Simulated scan of single mutants.
Amino acid sequence: MISKRFVPNILTVFRVLITPVCLYFILSTGPFYSLYAMILFLIASVTDAVDGWYARKYDVTTEFGKFLDPLADKILVMTMFVAFGLKGLAPWWMIFIVLFRDIFVTLLRSVMIRRGQSMHTSKFAKAKTGIQMFMIYFILTFLAIENIPVFDPFYSFLDKLLIDKHLLWVMMLLTSMITLYSGILYLFENKHVFTKKT
Results as ranks from 00 to 15, higher is better:
Val16His: 11
Val16Asn: 04
Val16Asp: 08
Val16Arg: 06
Leu17Met: 12
Leu17Lys: 09
Leu17Asp: 01
Ile18Leu: 15
Ile18Thr: 09
Thr19His: 10
Thr19Gly: 05
Thr19Met: 15
Thr19Lys: 09
Thr19Asp: 02
Pro20Arg: 07
Pro20Thr: 08
Val21His: 07
Cys22Phe: 14
Cys22Ala: 12
Cys22Met: 15
Leu23Val: 15
Leu23Trp: 11
Phe25Arg: 03
Phe25Ser: 00
Phe25Val: 10
Ile26Gly: 03
Ile26Thr: 06
Leu27Asn: 04
Ser28Trp: 09
Thr29Ile: 06
Thr29Val: 07
Gly30Lys: 14
Gly30Ile: 06
Pro31Gln: 11
Phe32Thr: 10
Phe32Trp: 07
Tyr33Met: 05
Tyr33Pro: 01
Tyr33Glu: 15
Tyr33Ile: 01
Ser34Arg: 06
Ser34Gln: 13
Leu35Arg: 11
Leu35Lys: 09
Tyr36Thr: 05
Tyr36Leu: 15
Tyr36Phe: 13
Ala37Glu: 00
Ala37Cys: 03
Ala37Ile: 02
Ile39Arg: 05
Ile39Asn: 06
Ile39Leu: 15
Ile39Lys: 10
Leu40Arg: 04
Leu40Val: 12
Leu40Met: 08
Leu42Asp: 04
Ile43Pro: 11
Ile43Met: 06
Ile43Lys: 03
Ala44Ile: 00
Ala44Pro: 11
Ala44Gln: 12
Ser45His: 04
Ser45Cys: 08
Ser45Val: 07
Val46Cys: 07
Val46Trp: 10
Thr47Leu: 11
Asp48Trp: 13
Asp48Asn: 09
Asp48Pro: 09
Ala49Tyr: 14
Ala49Lys: 14
Val50Leu: 14
Val50Arg: 07
Val50Gly: 02
Val50Thr: 01
Asp51Trp: 12
Asp51Pro: 12
Asp51Arg: 13
Asp51Glu: 10
Asp51Cys: 12
Asp51Lys: 13
Asp51Ile: 10
Asp51Asn: 14
Gly52Cys: 13
Gly52Ile: 01
Gly52Asp: 05
Tyr54Pro: 01
Tyr54Ala: 12
Tyr54Glu: 01
Ala55Gln: 06
Ala55Phe: 01
Ala55Cys: 06
Ala55Lys: 00
Arg56Ala: 06
Arg56His: 02
Arg56Met: 12
Lys57Asp: 00
Tyr58Gln: 05
Tyr58Glu: 01
Tyr58His: 14
Tyr58Arg: 08
Tyr58Thr: 01
Val60Leu: 06
Val60Asp: 00
Val60Met: 06
Val60Asn: 04
Thr61Tyr: 07
Thr61His: 07
Thr62Leu: 02
Glu63Cys: 04
Glu63Tyr: 02
Glu63Arg: 15
Glu63Thr: 14
Glu63Gln: 13
Phe64His: 02
Phe64Arg: 05
Phe64Lys: 00
Phe64Tyr: 13
Lys66Tyr: 05
Phe67His: 05
Phe67Gly: 01
Phe67Ser: 08
Phe67Ile: 14
Leu68His: 01
Leu68Tyr: 07
Leu68Arg: 04
Asp69Gly: 09
Ala72Ser: 10
Ala72Met: 03
Ala72Ile: 00
Ala72Thr: 00
Asp73Asn: 04
Asp73Ala: 12
Ile75Trp: 10
Ile75Ser: 04
Leu76Ile: 11
Val77Ser: 01
Val77Tyr: 11
Met78Ala: 15
Met78Phe: 02
Met80Pro: 01
Met80Phe: 11
Met80Ala: 14
Met80Leu: 15
Val82Cys: 15
Val82Gln: 03
Val82Gly: 00
Ala83Trp: 06
Ala83Tyr: 13
Ala83Thr: 04
Phe84Val: 00
Phe84Ala: 11
